[in-house]
Amino acid sequence: MTKQDTTLWDRQRNKIISKKGGWLIGDGVYCHGYEMMDELVGKVTYMQVVVLNATGRLPERRLAECIEAAHICLSWPDSRIWCNHIGALGGTMRASSVASTVAGVLATDSRSYGIKPLKAGLSFIQAAMLAFNNGVSVTDIVTNECAKHGGKPFIMGYGRPIAKGDERVPAMERVAKNLGFQVGAHLKLAYEIESVLDERFNEGMNINGYMSAFLSDQGFSPDEVYLICSTLVASGVTACYVDMRNRPAGTFLPLRCDDVLYQGKPHRLLPEQEDEVRG
């Protein structure tokens, strides 16, 4: 039998070669070229470091402030929201706050809501920008995207379950404006898409659509935004956890047996029991 080449793995046994940084004991703590205690702590915001750790680039403070504001937009303490609901269930059964918050965050790895649609939103608007620059009209961009969903107005970043319109969009517009950000090419295109959708389907832009376009204008890739926003909803989940943690255990939306609708097979006996019954 031929000896197999395991050089790749052998080279990395018992050692770590970090491309991010680390703690060199007695020397310092390094993060993407910065000495954390001297150059980052007390000088930049936590959100700037979140972006630095995720992308390797230290953003300007106002951009981090915008990203932080988006985190606030996704931190509602409403336990009906799916990820928050998980936090509340953790509270009612006395799970730890860490477990409950992390469980709620994990739930946002979802096709329907949370961070994956944000990543898809960036992919959409960046692809749309490419198409637009290649001469495809905004109307055709909308038509082509809707055609993927049987002509229905399913475009990542537009429309939303439960409600029409999104109060978070004007809030984020205000934040960006106050911080001196101009409307960039992606956001301009996103607005034009919204106008077509509104006229044709009575649907508008949601927070995902706004942030996807805004962050695309700031030069972020879909993967980078997914990394930056890994814990986007954490705080709202914690709030809903605390709400139920401070009440009697097991009292969050308690269910009677008949509050769950059974639609399965009727009562039956195991084959051996049936044999006994038949004698």
Partner: peptide
């Protein structure tokens, strides 16, 4: 200034109860 839609409820028809074909609990 971009004009956005006013926020209104969609009133989607959510189920009154969760349902299952797996497990039946009799009170």
């Amino acid at each position: 200034q971009q004009r956005h839609q006013k926020v209104t409820a969609r009133t989607e028809p959510f189920a009154d109860k969760a349902s299952t074909r797996i497990w039946e609990e009799l009170a």
